[in-house]
């Protein structure tokens, strides 16, 4: 564990707490893509299967349980409790365009040809693009509530912070994971546009609005 990974994980944790806070305080999941949330639940469930047979640490265990549980809880909130506040007509990204290629990539790039390893690879690739339905929705509506942008910023910061973590591990542990690193760089790059608007507008106290 190093400071970058710890801050990345805390940022990830914070993003989920901000999302829950947004839903509970506005009693609405307006502006949140159900598809992105469903993809994240898929990511966590397929990646953390090792919970059942591989012990890393208490920290690792608790975080994995939290990510699986919270992502399922968000799906429950969106699908049942606050269902009327979710508008599927603007959440139109075709997720099959993400799931298919990620499955193919996992078949091509993995560390071992076993089901858990294939699912692990799949989850890494899927995570890197899981935000696209959400960003697509943002693009369509052209604006977002401030709390939603804080959620996205914390989520983007999480994978961005993993990049210095991998550089650090390269030097201190001689560790490199080409699959995670490549996908992580792609994942972070997808946020660049969003980050630009977040830093130049939201953090200056303005509303998140995309130019028409």
């Amino acid at each position: 564990m190093n400071i970058f990974r710890l801050l990345g994980d805390l940022s990830h944790l914070a993003s989920i707490l901000i999302l829950l806070q947004k839903i509970q305080s506005t009693r609405s999941c307006r502006g949140i893509s159900f598809k992105t949330q469903a993809l994240y639940a898929t990511v966590f469930i397929t990646r953390y299967l090792d919970l059942f047979y591989d012990w890393v640490s208490l920290y690792n265990f608790v975080m994995k349980i939290f990510f699986i549980a919270s992502s399922c809880y968000v799906l429950y909130l969106m699908k049942y409790k606050y269902r009327p506040t979710h508008d599927p007509s603007i959440d139109t990204f075709r997720v099959e365009y993400l799931l298919g290629p990620c499955a193919v990539l996992a078949l091509l790039f993995h560390y071992r040809f076993t089901l858990p390893e294939l699912l692990w690879s799949f989850s890494i690739f899927l995570e890197s693009v899981a935000i696209l339905p959400q960003l697509f929705m943002l693009q369509r509506t052209g604006e977002a509530e401030t709390i939603t942008t804080h959620y996205l910023a914390a989520l983007g910061a999480y994978r961005a912070l993993y990049i210095p973590n991998w550089i650090y591990r390269w030097f201190t542990e001689d560790m490199v994971d080409p699959i995670a690193v490549t996908a992580g760089i792609v994942q972070t790059a997808l946020y660049l546009d969003f980050f630009y608007v977040y830093f130049t507008k939201v953090l200056q106290g303005q509303k998140f609005e995309l130019p028409a």
Binding site: D9, N60, F67, Y111, R112, Y162, M175, I179, A180
Partner: peptide, 10 residues
């Protein structure tokens, strides 16, 4: 065989 590199990450 390749070590399970980033499998200790989240």
């Amino acid at each position: 065989e390749k070590p399970r590199s980033a499998h200790d990450e989240l």
